[in-house]
Nucleic acid binder design. Structure first.
Lengths: 239, 239
DNA sequence: GAGTGGTCTAGACCACTTA
DNA sequence: AAGTGGTCTAGACCACTCT
């Protein structure tokens, strides 16, 4: 019970404000002395707090209370697009930059993508991958799939989609997206996501699957967006 | 590196389908033998998978690959309310039941609630707490705050709000909610949430703060909803 | 160099599950 | 009763940070 009780004490101290975000917690050695336990036990107590996302550990430096200052991602109406980031992310998102990682004009579509876009087997898709960074730290990774029958040959298949982003280009092509569906799931990140987004232990990700539909109901874009939940709050305004 | 490599091997095996949801992974003793490591090392490898939400452990029985079959919570237009649960939760949510835990006609409002509802210091709120269960397992905990000036004395302050839920009663009182804002955050659960929702290790929660506004823009209800992310997918339809 | 966290070993005892 | 995971001890060596 000792590891759990160490965690309990520290947790209470954090909640009560004895330790505030950024503060250093007692070291493993200090906890061993205070509680008279073996090192692995003190460690285990601390690791519980880490798993709860309450603390971050800095190797060689200490265990620190974590802060949460989320970027608000306001999805209402505003398309999530390369050149409209500042519109999409509200004022708290200042300092956000976008890096387009890869654009593939024609690629094979994974089964799930094909189904979501209503494509037949063998139909190609245009794929865009991008990364959002907040002060150098990657915070969001997005992959967009569009039917190549619509996107190939347009600026959507280029690195620079131009003013207004992919949605403006879709509109140019007569496929303006007018309705969106977002499916939101929270889960622990995969190893790849931990590396790509440099996610802290004890931090989940938000995985958003967004489908954009044209006026005739045709799906025109499918996006998989993975957000570091330690950095974001999703905001939805519903009428 | 060994604990990490054990985790890596098992993770790859799970992804490739060698182990499918529900399957038992090799025991700690088996991993000790296979990799020639101490027990704590094998354990650590397994605990990584648990922290990633890939597995669940059953004491005395084994470590099993986890499944994810989410309830879809479709928020579009449909109010999240006691008597409208079946409307709110789509067909995959069959088997969901609601338990109203507590109703307080007049309570002091926490500062954040007061601010969100635009109340003055000393103003009272009506508080409703409820728990949703899926086949006996609690999956969602919700607390609603309404200005007591509106709700006290109406069925909203009663255990049974009647047909149509609180939103219908708000409408009866001339405060029909017409606009909603939902702020969604994902994080690891607190100890209380782990106990209350019986959340598995390695599972985050979705914390939704929903504000309902009447036609004149007045906030009429603030709800804090905590969902077991191992059980839910949030769906938003946006025009 | 002193102090911090990261990893691993080898062994003990306990609690739960399954047959 | 045998097998499983849960917890703890006591000690080792390594890697990183701070001053």
């Amino acid at each position: 019970m000792t590891a759990a009780s160490i965690a309990k004490d520290l947790r209470a101290a954090i909640r009560s404000g004895t330790y505030t975000p950024g503060d250093r917690l007692p070291s493993e050695a200090a906890l061993m002395a205070t509680y008279g336990v073996a090192r692995m036990t003190a460690r285990h107590g601390l690791s519980m707090l880490k798993d709860e996302g309450l603390t971050v550990t800095r190797h060689g430096s200490g265990v620190f209370v974590r802060a949460f200052e989320p970027i608000i991602r306001d999805t209402t109406g505003a398309p999530a697009d390369d050149s409209t980031v500042t519109a999409e992310i509200d004022e708290t998102g200042a300092g956000l930059t976008v890096r387009t990682l890869a654009v593939t004009a024609e690629a094979d579509a994974p089964e799930k993508v094909r189904t979501a876009l209503g494509l037949a087997e063998g139909d190609k898709v245009t794929v865009r991958e991008r990364l959002h960074l907040r002060e150098r730290k990657p915070v969001l990774f997005a992959t967009s799939y569009l039917p190549a029958s619509i996107a190939a040959g347009t600026p959507i298949a280029e690195r620079d989609v131009g003013q207004g982003g992919t949605h403006a280009r879709l509109a140019d092509a007569g496929h303006a997206p007018v309705r969106f569906r977002e499916d939101v799931v929270a889960r622990m990140p995969s190893i790849e996501e931990i590396e790509e987004l440099r996610i802290e232990p004890g931090t989940p990700v938000l995985a958003v699957t967004r489908t954009a539909f044209a006026a005739d109901g045709t799906p025109v874009e499918l996006s998989h967006v993975v957000l570091d939940a330690g950095e974001f709050m999703l905001r939805y305004d519903i009428d």
